[in-house]
């Protein structure tokens, strides 16, 4: 029965991270009830949806009050940031360089913030969910950091072509094209904002 304690120790002591580009275990955005809005897991730490939910619940309980930026939980290092009713999380192995995780978190937050025109709250995020999905996909690809510069991420997500031949478009599209000088999802955000006031 003496086996339990030593396992934990050996894990804490594994000092050197294996040279690998697979740095990120998961990315998540939760709302202020701890419900998942976006969550992407890149390895088998939590293989089933049920385990993922349980982890997110635990994570949220531990982080939604204390604004402490970083926490270790279930052997995972997790950096986080929150704004109004949104919580952004980036998870990595407990051996991972915490600053690398933080750089990815900042990129995620700043990209979303730019896309939502600094209006980082749940409602705006839900209205631009497609953009957020694309942004997450541009930041981390299968656990590898693909891009950590928010400007580059926003640029890669946001661009809508202006040069689609008019003949290939429907009347509605052409109308939209004339109305939209800004990218579609941005425009949509603005309209909402206007309505809200």
């Amino acid at each position: 029965m003496g086996k339990h304690g030593h396992v934990a120790e050996s894990n804490m002591d594994a000092a050197f991270p294996e040279p690998s580009l697979y740095t990120i275990k998961a990315i998540a955005i939760l709302d202020n009830d701890g419900e998942r809005i976006v969550a992407k897991y890149f390895d088998e730490t939590f293989p089933t949806a049920k385990e993922q939910r349980a982890f997110e619940k635990n994570l949220f309980n531990k982080t939604h009050r204390a604004n402490a930026e970083i926490i270790m939980l279930e052997g995972i290092t997790c950096v986080y940031r929150s704004n109004v009713d949104l919580f952004f999380y980036v998870m990595g192995s407990s051996n991972e360089n915490e600053l690398i995780l933080a750089s990815v978190l900042n990129c995620l937050y700043d990209s979303v913030s730019q896309m939502l025109r600094k209006n980082v709250e749940k409602r705006a995020l839900m209205d631009n969910l497609d953009g957020v999905f694309l942004a997450v996909d541009e930041i981390v690809d299968g656990g590898i950091i693909l891009e950590a510069d928010p400007n580059a991420v926003v640029q890669r997500v946001a661009l809508r072509t202006e040069d689609v031949p008019l003949t290939e478009q429907t009347v509605a599209q052409v109308r939209k094209l004339i109305k939209d000088t800004a990218p579609g999802w941005l425009k949509k955000g603005t309209v909402r904002e206007g309505n809200g006031q």
């Binding site: 396992v7 934990a8 050996s10 894990n11 804490m12 002591d13 594994a14 279930e74 052997g75």
Partner: peptide, 9 residues
Amino acid sequence: QGAEVTPTA
């Protein structure tokens, strides 16, 4: 790699 086991295992 015995060390792979997580503390919660």
